[in-house]
């Protein structure tokens, strides 16, 4: 199966790519999709994950053709000196 993987915000900058496609034989969780797309680096706990534009847990199973997106949580209010 083919899964479209998208990276947003600072993740896009770090990874240097905003979209990759991965292929898998077995069903994968969102965290496993990340690992496969990012050289087996484990998915950091704080990263938000979405499947087909729905906010989901990192252990959610992904289906063929799904779009999996990763977002760094944004916390600043730009109030700092």
């Amino acid at each position: 199966m083919t899964i479209v993987v998208k990276f947003f915000g600072s993740l896009r900058e770090e990874i240097g790519n905003h979209e990759v496609k991965i292929k898998a034989e077995q069903p994968l969780t969102v965290a496993q999709v990340w690992a496969q797309a990012c050289d087996e680096v484990p998915l950091p706990h704080h990263i938000w994950t979405a499947v087909n534009m729905n906010y989901v847990e990192q252990n959610t199973l992904v289906q063929d053709g799904d779009e999996v997106a990763f977002f760094p949580p944004v916390t600043g209010g730009s109030d700092e000196n």
């Binding site: 947003f8 896009r12 905003h18 979405a50 534009m53 729905n54 906010y55 977002f71």
Partner: peptide, 16 residues
């Protein structure tokens, strides 16, 4: 609602 102005992409995620 998420915005990345560098690529000018908006995303709306359903948040349960």
């Amino acid at each position: 609602l998420l915005l990345d102005t560098f690529t000018l992409q908006w995303r709306t995620l359903k948040l349960p």
